[in-house]
Design a protein around this nucleic acid. Structure first.
Lengths: 233, 233
DNA sequence: GTGACAAATAAGTCTGACTTTTTGGTTCCG
DNA sequence: CGGAACCAAAAAGTCAGACTTATTTGTCAC
Protein backbone atom coordinates (compact mmCIF):
# COMPACT_ATOMS: atom_id res chain seq x y z
CA UNK A 1 0.00 0.00 0.00
CA UNK A 2 1.00 3.60 -0.48
CA UNK A 3 3.94 4.87 1.47
CA UNK A 4 5.01 8.48 1.28
CA UNK A 5 5.00 8.08 -2.47
CA UNK A 6 7.23 9.63 -5.06
CA UNK A 7 10.03 12.02 -4.71
CA UNK A 8 13.46 11.50 -3.29
CA UNK A 9 12.50 12.97 0.05
CA UNK A 10 9.78 10.36 0.26
CA UNK A 11 12.31 7.59 -0.04
CA UNK A 12 14.31 9.08 2.75
CA UNK A 13 11.19 9.27 4.93
CA UNK A 14 10.40 5.66 4.17
CA UNK A 15 13.48 4.63 6.12
CA UNK A 16 13.92 7.50 8.55
CA UNK A 17 10.30 7.61 9.64
CA UNK A 18 10.03 3.96 10.61
CA UNK A 19 13.44 4.13 12.28
CA UNK A 20 12.48 7.04 14.48
CA UNK A 21 9.01 5.78 15.35
CA UNK A 22 10.53 2.40 16.17
CA UNK A 23 12.62 4.13 18.78
CA UNK A 24 15.94 3.42 17.10
CA UNK A 25 17.03 6.91 18.01
CA UNK A 26 16.32 7.56 21.68
CA UNK A 27 14.68 10.88 22.55
CA UNK A 28 17.24 13.67 22.51
CA UNK A 29 19.40 11.97 19.91
CA UNK A 30 21.03 14.46 17.61
CA UNK A 31 21.11 14.02 13.86
CA UNK A 32 22.92 16.35 11.49
CA UNK A 33 21.33 17.23 8.19
CA UNK A 34 24.56 17.06 6.25
CA UNK A 35 25.47 13.70 7.65
CA UNK A 36 22.00 12.32 6.88
CA UNK A 37 22.20 13.72 3.35
CA UNK A 38 25.46 11.83 2.86
CA UNK A 39 24.08 8.67 4.40
CA UNK A 40 21.06 8.64 2.11
CA UNK A 41 23.04 9.95 -0.82
CA UNK A 42 20.76 12.88 -1.50
CA UNK A 43 21.33 16.60 -1.69
CA UNK A 44 20.90 18.80 1.35
CA UNK A 45 17.77 20.38 -0.14
CA UNK A 46 16.06 17.01 -0.33
CA UNK A 47 17.16 16.12 3.16
CA UNK A 48 15.91 19.43 4.47
CA UNK A 49 12.49 18.75 3.01
CA UNK A 50 12.40 15.37 4.70
CA UNK A 51 13.39 16.93 8.00
CA UNK A 52 10.64 19.52 7.62
CA UNK A 53 8.07 16.78 7.25
CA UNK A 54 9.37 14.92 10.30
CA UNK A 55 9.29 18.23 12.13
CA UNK A 56 5.67 18.83 11.18
CA UNK A 57 4.88 15.42 12.66
CA UNK A 58 6.65 16.51 15.83
CA UNK A 59 8.98 13.55 15.57
CA UNK A 60 12.01 15.83 15.57
CA UNK A 61 12.89 19.41 16.32
CA UNK A 62 15.47 21.32 14.33
CA UNK A 63 17.55 23.89 16.16
CA UNK A 64 20.44 25.97 15.00
CA UNK A 65 23.93 25.08 16.04
CA UNK A 66 22.71 21.89 17.69
CA UNK A 67 21.09 19.83 14.95
CA UNK A 68 17.96 17.80 14.46
CA UNK A 69 16.94 16.30 17.79
CA UNK A 70 14.52 13.42 18.19
CA UNK A 71 11.55 14.36 20.35
CA UNK A 72 10.13 12.13 23.08
CA UNK A 73 7.31 9.86 22.02
CA UNK A 74 4.83 11.81 24.15
CA UNK A 75 5.12 14.74 21.75
CA UNK A 76 4.62 12.89 18.49
CA UNK A 77 1.57 13.56 16.35
CA UNK A 78 0.22 10.07 16.95
CA UNK A 79 -2.89 10.74 14.88
CA UNK A 80 -0.90 11.33 11.73
CA UNK A 81 -1.85 8.45 9.42
CA UNK A 82 1.73 8.20 8.25
CA UNK A 83 3.02 7.91 11.79
CA UNK A 84 0.37 5.30 12.55
CA UNK A 85 1.40 3.31 9.49
CA UNK A 86 5.06 3.49 10.41
CA UNK A 87 4.38 2.32 13.93
CA UNK A 88 2.08 -0.46 12.77
CA UNK A 89 4.82 -1.66 10.46
CA UNK A 90 7.47 -1.73 13.17
CA UNK A 91 8.25 -3.19 16.53
CA UNK A 92 5.71 -0.93 18.20
CA UNK A 93 2.91 -2.67 16.36
CA UNK A 94 1.25 -4.48 19.31
CA UNK A 95 1.23 -1.40 21.47
CA UNK A 96 -0.09 0.77 18.63
CA UNK A 97 -2.80 -1.78 17.89
CA UNK A 98 -3.98 -1.72 21.47
CA UNK A 99 -4.06 2.08 21.57
CA UNK A 100 -6.08 2.21 18.39
CA UNK A 101 -8.51 -0.44 19.55
CA UNK A 102 -9.20 1.51 22.73
CA UNK A 103 -9.68 4.61 20.59
CA UNK A 104 -12.16 2.70 18.44
CA UNK A 105 -14.03 1.56 21.53
CA UNK A 106 -14.56 5.19 22.47
CA UNK A 107 -15.41 6.59 19.05
CA UNK A 108 -17.42 4.00 17.18
CA UNK A 109 -20.37 3.65 19.55
CA UNK A 110 -20.89 7.41 19.59
CA UNK A 111 -20.48 7.50 15.82
CA UNK A 112 -23.09 4.77 15.42
CA UNK A 113 -25.50 6.73 17.59
CA UNK A 114 -25.03 9.80 15.41
CA UNK A 115 -25.31 7.70 12.27
CA UNK A 116 -28.72 6.50 13.43
CA UNK A 117 -29.81 10.12 13.46
CA UNK A 118 -28.13 11.45 10.37
CA UNK A 119 -27.49 8.58 7.95
CA UNK A 120 -28.91 9.15 4.47
CA UNK A 121 -31.01 6.57 2.68
CA UNK A 122 -28.03 5.66 0.52
CA UNK A 123 -25.85 5.18 3.56
CA UNK A 124 -28.46 2.95 5.18
CA UNK A 125 -28.57 0.89 2.01
CA UNK A 126 -24.80 0.63 1.89
CA UNK A 127 -24.75 -0.41 5.51
CA UNK A 128 -27.25 -3.17 4.92
CA UNK A 129 -25.30 -4.36 1.89
CA UNK A 130 -22.15 -4.53 3.96
CA UNK A 131 -23.89 -6.47 6.69
CA UNK A 132 -25.25 -8.92 4.14
CA UNK A 133 -21.80 -9.27 2.67
CA UNK A 134 -20.40 -10.04 6.09
CA UNK A 135 -23.00 -12.73 6.70
CA UNK A 136 -22.38 -14.23 3.29
CA UNK A 137 -18.65 -14.55 3.99
CA UNK A 138 -18.84 -15.45 7.64
CA UNK A 139 -18.35 -19.19 7.06
CA UNK A 140 -15.95 -21.20 5.02
CA UNK A 141 -12.66 -19.40 5.50
CA UNK A 142 -13.53 -16.46 3.29
CA UNK A 143 -11.72 -14.14 5.65
CA UNK A 144 -10.50 -11.82 2.94
CA UNK A 145 -13.96 -11.15 1.55
CA UNK A 146 -15.33 -10.84 5.04
CA UNK A 147 -12.72 -8.21 5.83
CA UNK A 148 -13.67 -6.10 2.83
CA UNK A 149 -17.25 -5.85 3.98
CA UNK A 150 -16.30 -5.38 7.60
CA UNK A 151 -14.07 -2.43 6.73
CA UNK A 152 -16.71 -0.93 4.48
CA UNK A 153 -19.29 -1.30 7.22
CA UNK A 154 -17.29 0.65 9.76
CA UNK A 155 -16.32 3.26 7.20
CA UNK A 156 -19.97 3.93 6.42
CA UNK A 157 -20.83 4.22 10.10
CA UNK A 158 -18.04 6.73 10.68
CA UNK A 159 -18.91 8.72 7.57
CA UNK A 160 -22.63 8.69 8.32
CA UNK A 161 -22.00 10.15 11.76
CA UNK A 162 -21.69 13.50 10.04
CA UNK A 163 -18.61 14.34 12.07
CA UNK A 164 -15.55 14.98 9.97
CA UNK A 165 -13.19 13.96 12.75
CA UNK A 166 -14.90 10.60 13.08
CA UNK A 167 -15.02 10.14 9.33
CA UNK A 168 -11.27 10.53 9.08
CA UNK A 169 -10.76 7.55 11.37
CA UNK A 170 -12.00 5.27 8.61
CA UNK A 171 -8.48 4.60 7.41
CA UNK A 172 -7.31 3.86 10.92
CA UNK A 173 -10.09 1.38 11.54
CA UNK A 174 -9.36 -0.24 8.21
CA UNK A 175 -5.74 -0.57 9.22
CA UNK A 176 -6.70 -2.17 12.54
CA UNK A 177 -9.17 -4.61 11.05
CA UNK A 178 -6.77 -5.57 8.28
CA UNK A 179 -4.02 -6.03 10.84
CA UNK A 180 -6.17 -8.32 12.92
CA UNK A 181 -6.99 -10.48 9.93
CA UNK A 182 -3.53 -10.59 8.42
CA UNK A 183 -1.03 -10.47 11.23
CA UNK A 184 -2.81 -11.58 14.37
CA UNK A 185 -4.33 -14.91 15.18
CA UNK A 186 -7.30 -15.27 12.88
CA UNK A 187 -7.41 -18.82 11.68
CA UNK A 188 -11.08 -19.54 12.15
CA UNK A 189 -14.20 -17.90 10.83
CA UNK A 190 -15.31 -14.72 12.61
CA UNK A 191 -17.42 -14.96 15.75
CA UNK A 192 -21.07 -15.50 14.69
CA UNK A 193 -22.21 -13.27 17.53
CA UNK A 194 -20.16 -10.38 16.13
CA UNK A 195 -21.67 -10.88 12.69
CA UNK A 196 -25.16 -10.78 14.17
CA UNK A 197 -24.31 -7.59 16.03
CA UNK A 198 -23.31 -5.89 12.80
CA UNK A 199 -26.60 -6.87 11.20
CA UNK A 200 -28.46 -5.50 14.19
CA UNK A 201 -26.51 -2.23 14.11
CA UNK A 202 -27.50 -1.81 10.48
CA UNK A 203 -31.10 -2.38 11.53
CA UNK A 204 -30.93 0.11 14.37
CA UNK A 205 -29.39 2.79 12.16
CA UNK A 206 -32.03 2.17 9.51
CA UNK A 207 -34.75 2.58 12.11
CA UNK A 208 -33.11 5.67 13.56
CA UNK A 209 -32.71 4.06 16.97
CA UNK A 210 -29.65 5.90 18.22
CA UNK A 211 -29.57 4.39 21.68
CA UNK A 212 -29.72 0.85 20.36
CA UNK A 213 -27.16 1.51 17.63
CA UNK A 214 -24.77 2.89 20.21
CA UNK A 215 -25.28 0.02 22.64
CA UNK A 216 -24.86 -2.64 19.98
CA UNK A 217 -21.73 -1.02 18.63
CA UNK A 218 -20.38 -0.87 22.14
CA UNK A 219 -20.82 -4.62 22.29
CA UNK A 220 -18.83 -4.98 19.10
CA UNK A 221 -15.97 -2.87 20.40
CA UNK A 222 -15.99 -4.69 23.72
CA UNK A 223 -15.44 -7.84 21.70
CA UNK A 224 -12.50 -6.20 19.95
CA UNK A 225 -11.01 -5.22 23.31
CA UNK A 226 -11.42 -8.74 24.63
CA UNK A 227 -9.58 -10.15 21.64
CA UNK A 228 -6.55 -8.17 22.75
CA UNK A 229 -7.03 -9.05 26.42
CA UNK A 230 -7.78 -5.46 27.27
CA UNK A 231 -10.43 -5.29 29.97
CA UNK A 232 -10.71 -5.86 33.66
CA UNK A 233 -12.83 -8.76 34.95
CA UNK B 1 0.69 31.31 21.55
CA UNK B 2 3.06 29.31 19.40
CA UNK B 3 2.42 29.20 15.71
CA UNK B 4 4.70 27.29 13.39
CA UNK B 5 7.54 29.20 14.97
CA UNK B 6 10.88 30.12 13.55
CA UNK B 7 12.21 29.86 10.10
CA UNK B 8 11.14 31.57 6.93
CA UNK B 9 9.07 28.62 5.83
CA UNK B 10 7.16 28.95 9.08
CA UNK B 11 6.19 32.50 8.21
CA UNK B 12 4.91 31.34 4.87
CA UNK B 13 2.86 28.60 6.55
CA UNK B 14 1.42 31.10 8.98
CA UNK B 15 -0.42 32.78 6.12
CA UNK B 16 -0.80 29.97 3.62
CA UNK B 17 -2.04 27.40 6.14
CA UNK B 18 -4.89 29.51 7.48
CA UNK B 19 -5.80 30.58 3.95
CA UNK B 20 -6.12 27.03 2.71
CA UNK B 21 -7.93 25.68 5.77
CA UNK B 22 -10.29 28.64 5.57
CA UNK B 23 -11.27 27.47 2.12
CA UNK B 24 -9.88 30.51 0.32
CA UNK B 25 -8.59 28.18 -2.35
CA UNK B 26 -11.38 25.81 -3.43
CA UNK B 27 -10.44 22.15 -3.79
CA UNK B 28 -8.59 21.54 -7.01
CA UNK B 29 -7.12 25.02 -7.11
CA UNK B 30 -3.66 25.05 -8.57
CA UNK B 31 -0.78 26.95 -7.01
CA UNK B 32 2.64 27.22 -8.55
CA UNK B 33 5.68 27.03 -6.34
CA UNK B 34 7.57 29.72 -8.21
CA UNK B 35 4.66 32.12 -8.10
CA UNK B 36 4.17 31.53 -4.38
CA UNK B 37 7.88 32.04 -3.77
CA UNK B 38 7.62 35.40 -5.48
CA UNK B 39 4.47 36.36 -3.66
CA UNK B 40 6.00 35.63 -0.25
CA UNK B 41 9.39 36.95 -1.32
CA UNK B 42 11.29 33.83 -0.39
CA UNK B 43 13.55 31.50 -2.31
CA UNK B 44 12.17 28.42 -4.00
CA UNK B 45 13.93 26.17 -1.48
CA UNK B 46 12.03 27.76 1.38
CA UNK B 47 8.80 27.60 -0.53
CA UNK B 48 9.36 23.96 -1.33
CA UNK B 49 9.82 23.18 2.34
CA UNK B 50 6.55 24.91 3.14
CA UNK B 51 4.78 22.97 0.42
CA UNK B 52 6.20 19.72 1.78
CA UNK B 53 4.71 20.47 5.17
CA UNK B 54 1.31 21.28 3.68
CA UNK B 55 1.62 18.09 1.69
CA UNK B 56 2.31 16.04 4.81
CA UNK B 57 -0.88 17.48 6.28
CA UNK B 58 -2.71 16.36 3.15
CA UNK B 59 -3.85 19.91 2.54
CA UNK B 60 -2.25 19.93 -0.91
CA UNK B 61 -0.79 17.49 -3.39
CA UNK B 62 2.20 18.35 -5.53
CA UNK B 63 2.32 16.86 -9.01
CA UNK B 64 4.77 17.41 -11.78
CA UNK B 65 3.85 19.58 -14.69
CA UNK B 66 0.57 20.55 -13.05
CA UNK B 67 1.50 22.29 -9.81
CA UNK B 68 0.43 22.23 -6.20
CA UNK B 69 -3.25 21.38 -6.03
CA UNK B 70 -5.46 21.98 -3.01
CA UNK B 71 -7.07 18.81 -1.73
CA UNK B 72 -10.72 18.51 -0.72
CA UNK B 73 -11.41 19.05 2.95
CA UNK B 74 -12.38 15.41 3.39
CA UNK B 75 -8.74 14.40 2.88
CA UNK B 76 -7.12 16.81 5.29
CA UNK B 77 -5.33 15.52 8.37
CA UNK B 78 -7.90 17.08 10.66
CA UNK B 79 -6.18 15.73 13.77
CA UNK B 80 -3.01 17.68 13.09
CA UNK B 81 -2.78 20.20 15.93
CA UNK B 82 -1.55 22.83 13.52
CA UNK B 83 -4.50 22.29 11.21
CA UNK B 84 -6.86 22.44 14.19
CA UNK B 85 -5.31 25.72 15.31
CA UNK B 86 -5.55 27.21 11.85
CA UNK B 87 -9.19 26.25 11.54
CA UNK B 88 -10.02 27.50 15.02
CA UNK B 89 -8.44 30.82 14.12
CA UNK B 90 -10.42 31.21 10.93
CA UNK B 91 -13.94 31.33 9.59
CA UNK B 92 -14.36 27.61 10.12
CA UNK B 93 -14.11 28.10 13.86
CA UNK B 94 -17.72 27.31 14.86
CA UNK B 95 -17.83 24.16 12.79
CA UNK B 96 -14.44 23.02 14.07
CA UNK B 97 -15.50 23.70 17.63
CA UNK B 98 -18.58 21.54 17.23
CA UNK B 99 -16.59 18.68 15.72
CA UNK B 100 -14.10 18.80 18.55
CA UNK B 101 -16.79 18.92 21.20
CA UNK B 102 -18.43 15.82 19.78
CA UNK B 103 -15.01 14.17 19.73
CA UNK B 104 -14.54 15.10 23.37
CA UNK B 105 -17.93 13.64 24.24
CA UNK B 106 -16.80 10.32 22.84
CA UNK B 107 -13.29 10.23 24.26
CA UNK B 108 -13.35 11.80 27.70
CA UNK B 109 -15.85 9.47 29.40
CA UNK B 110 -13.89 6.43 28.28
CA UNK B 111 -10.65 8.12 29.32
CA UNK B 112 -12.11 8.84 32.76
CA UNK B 113 -13.11 5.22 33.16
CA UNK B 114 -9.58 4.12 32.33
CA UNK B 115 -8.13 6.78 34.60
CA UNK B 116 -10.13 5.32 37.49
CA UNK B 117 -8.31 2.06 36.90
CA UNK B 118 -4.82 3.28 36.12
CA UNK B 119 -4.30 6.69 37.69
CA UNK B 120 -1.25 6.93 39.93
CA UNK B 121 -1.36 8.40 43.42
CA UNK B 122 0.25 11.58 42.11
CA UNK B 123 -2.30 11.88 39.36
CA UNK B 124 -5.15 11.42 41.83
CA UNK B 125 -3.64 14.16 43.96
CA UNK B 126 -3.27 16.48 40.98
CA UNK B 127 -6.85 15.79 40.00
CA UNK B 128 -8.11 16.69 43.43
CA UNK B 129 -6.05 19.86 43.42
CA UNK B 130 -7.51 20.86 40.08
CA UNK B 131 -11.03 20.22 41.31
CA UNK B 132 -10.35 22.32 44.40
CA UNK B 133 -8.96 25.08 42.21
CA UNK B 134 -12.09 24.99 40.08
CA UNK B 135 -14.32 25.28 43.11
CA UNK B 136 -12.23 28.12 44.49
CA UNK B 137 -12.61 30.11 41.27
CA UNK B 138 -16.16 29.17 40.42
CA UNK B 139 -17.63 32.41 41.74
CA UNK B 140 -16.77 36.06 41.31
CA UNK B 141 -15.84 36.31 37.65
CA UNK B 142 -12.50 34.58 38.03
CA UNK B 143 -13.01 32.89 34.69
CA UNK B 144 -9.37 32.98 33.74
CA UNK B 145 -8.22 31.18 36.87
CA UNK B 146 -11.11 28.76 36.59
CA UNK B 147 -10.05 27.94 33.04
CA UNK B 148 -6.50 27.10 34.09
CA UNK B 149 -7.71 24.49 36.55
CA UNK B 150 -10.37 23.19 34.20
CA UNK B 151 -7.81 22.60 31.47
CA UNK B 152 -5.41 20.99 33.92
CA UNK B 153 -8.18 18.71 35.17
CA UNK B 154 -9.01 17.35 31.75
CA UNK B 155 -5.35 17.01 30.86
CA UNK B 156 -4.73 14.85 33.91
CA UNK B 157 -7.73 12.66 33.11
CA UNK B 158 -6.54 12.10 29.55
CA UNK B 159 -2.97 11.45 30.64
CA UNK B 160 -4.02 9.13 33.47
CA UNK B 161 -6.02 6.99 31.05
CA UNK B 162 -2.73 5.42 30.09
CA UNK B 163 -3.63 5.65 26.40
CA UNK B 164 -1.18 7.72 24.41
CA UNK B 165 -3.79 8.62 21.79
CA UNK B 166 -6.08 10.00 24.47
CA UNK B 167 -3.24 11.80 26.18
CA UNK B 168 -2.41 13.67 23.00
CA UNK B 169 -5.88 15.19 22.93
CA UNK B 170 -4.96 17.31 25.93
CA UNK B 171 -3.94 20.22 23.73
CA UNK B 172 -7.13 19.96 21.73
CA UNK B 173 -9.30 19.99 24.83
CA UNK B 174 -7.32 22.94 26.14
CA UNK B 175 -7.95 24.75 22.88
CA UNK B 176 -11.69 24.04 23.05
CA UNK B 177 -12.04 25.10 26.68
CA UNK B 178 -10.02 28.24 26.11
CA UNK B 179 -12.07 29.02 23.05
CA UNK B 180 -15.30 28.68 24.99
CA UNK B 181 -14.07 31.05 27.67
CA UNK B 182 -12.49 33.62 25.40
CA UNK B 183 -14.49 33.75 22.20
CA UNK B 184 -17.89 32.30 22.95
CA UNK B 185 -20.56 33.53 25.28
CA UNK B 186 -19.14 33.14 28.76
CA UNK B 187 -20.10 36.19 30.74
CA UNK B 188 -21.26 34.53 33.93
CA UNK B 189 -19.62 32.18 36.35
CA UNK B 190 -19.52 28.52 35.32
CA UNK B 191 -22.49 26.28 35.98
CA UNK B 192 -22.29 25.11 39.62
CA UNK B 193 -23.57 21.69 38.59
CA UNK B 194 -20.61 21.27 36.25
CA UNK B 195 -18.20 22.21 39.00
CA UNK B 196 -19.73 19.63 41.29
CA UNK B 197 -19.47 17.00 38.59
CA UNK B 198 -15.75 17.63 38.28
CA UNK B 199 -15.31 17.18 42.01
CA UNK B 200 -17.26 13.96 41.86
CA UNK B 201 -15.20 12.66 38.95
CA UNK B 202 -12.06 13.28 40.98
CA UNK B 203 -13.64 11.31 43.80
CA UNK B 204 -14.64 8.43 41.57
CA UNK B 205 -11.17 8.20 40.04
CA UNK B 206 -9.58 8.28 43.46
CA UNK B 207 -11.82 5.44 44.58
CA UNK B 208 -11.18 3.47 41.42
CA UNK B 209 -14.84 3.50 40.46
CA UNK B 210 -14.54 3.32 36.69
CA UNK B 211 -18.23 3.04 35.94
CA UNK B 212 -19.08 6.10 38.00
CA UNK B 213 -16.17 8.13 36.65
CA UNK B 214 -17.30 7.37 33.11
CA UNK B 215 -20.94 8.19 33.80
CA UNK B 216 -20.12 11.46 35.54
CA UNK B 217 -17.77 12.54 32.79
CA UNK B 218 -20.46 11.72 30.27
CA UNK B 219 -22.68 14.17 32.11
CA UNK B 220 -20.00 16.82 31.80
CA UNK B 221 -19.62 16.30 28.08
CA UNK B 222 -23.38 16.27 27.58
CA UNK B 223 -23.35 19.70 29.16
CA UNK B 224 -20.68 20.82 26.71
CA UNK B 225 -22.76 19.53 23.82
CA UNK B 226 -25.83 21.36 25.09
CA UNK B 227 -23.90 24.61 25.25
CA UNK B 228 -23.43 24.35 21.50
CA UNK B 229 -27.00 23.22 20.88
CA UNK B 230 -25.83 19.84 19.73
CA UNK B 231 -28.26 17.14 20.85
CA UNK B 232 -31.66 15.83 19.94
CA UNK B 233 -34.57 16.23 22.40
C1' DG C 1 -10.71 9.04 -34.54
C1' DT C 2 -6.42 6.99 -33.13
C1' DG C 3 -1.79 6.63 -32.65
C1' DA C 4 2.81 8.34 -32.26
C1' DC C 5 5.77 12.02 -31.65
C1' DA C 6 7.35 16.59 -30.22
C1' DA C 7 7.26 20.72 -27.41
C1' DA C 8 6.14 23.11 -23.39
C1' DT C 9 5.83 23.33 -18.50
C1' DA C 10 6.37 23.03 -13.70
C1' DA C 11 8.13 20.22 -10.17
C1' DG C 12 12.29 17.91 -8.72
C1' DT C 13 17.27 17.84 -7.88
C1' DC C 14 21.98 19.33 -7.15
C1' DT C 15 25.68 22.46 -5.98
C1' DG C 16 28.13 26.02 -3.85
C1' DA C 17 28.38 30.19 -1.56
C1' DC C 18 26.74 32.91 1.99
C1' DT C 19 24.12 34.38 6.54
C1' DT C 20 22.45 33.80 11.16
C1' DT C 21 21.89 31.96 15.49
C1' DT C 22 23.38 29.50 19.31
C1' DT C 23 26.64 27.48 22.18
C1' DG C 24 30.81 26.73 24.58
C1' DG C 25 35.02 28.18 25.80
C1' DT C 26 38.37 31.79 26.95
C1' DT C 27 39.92 35.73 28.80
C1' DC C 28 39.78 39.43 31.62
C1' DC C 29 38.54 41.78 35.40
C1' DG C 30 36.20 42.09 40.23
C1' DC D 1 37.04 31.87 42.86
C1' DG D 2 33.22 33.81 40.15
C1' DG D 3 30.95 36.34 36.83
C1' DA D 4 30.62 39.15 32.70
C1' DA D 5 32.05 40.10 28.22
C1' DC D 6 33.75 38.48 24.17
C1' DC D 7 35.24 35.46 20.46
C1' DA D 8 35.20 31.52 17.50
C1' DA D 9 33.22 27.35 15.81
C1' DA D 10 29.33 24.67 14.34
C1' DA D 11 25.24 23.62 12.26
C1' DA D 12 20.94 25.09 10.46
C1' DG D 13 18.99 28.51 7.43
C1' DT D 14 18.84 31.05 3.08
C1' DC D 15 19.58 32.12 -1.63
C1' DA D 16 20.55 31.82 -6.67
C1' DG D 17 21.24 29.40 -10.79
C1' DA D 18 21.71 25.52 -13.65
C1' DC D 19 20.10 21.29 -14.84
C1' DT D 20 16.89 16.89 -14.97
C1' DT D 21 12.60 14.51 -15.35
C1' DA D 22 7.99 13.46 -15.68
C1' DT D 23 3.55 14.73 -17.48
C1' DT D 24 0.49 17.00 -20.20
C1' DT D 25 -1.05 18.89 -24.28
C1' DG D 26 -1.11 19.75 -28.96
C1' DT D 27 -0.05 18.43 -33.61
C1' DC D 28 0.44 15.75 -37.50
C1' DA D 29 0.19 11.76 -40.16
C1' DC D 30 -2.25 7.57 -41.03
Amino acid sequence: MSTTGRGLHGRVLDTLGPAITAGEYPPGSVLRTDELAQRFDVSRSVMREAVRVLESMHLVASRRRVGVTVRPKAEWNVYDPQVIRWRLAGADRPHQLRSLTVLRSAIEPVAAGLAAKFASAEQCAELTECAIGMVANSRGHKLEDYLVHDVAFHRVILAASGNEMFARLGDVVAEVLAGRTHHEVMFEDPDPAAVTLHVQVAEAVREGDAVRAEALTREITVGALQELDILAP
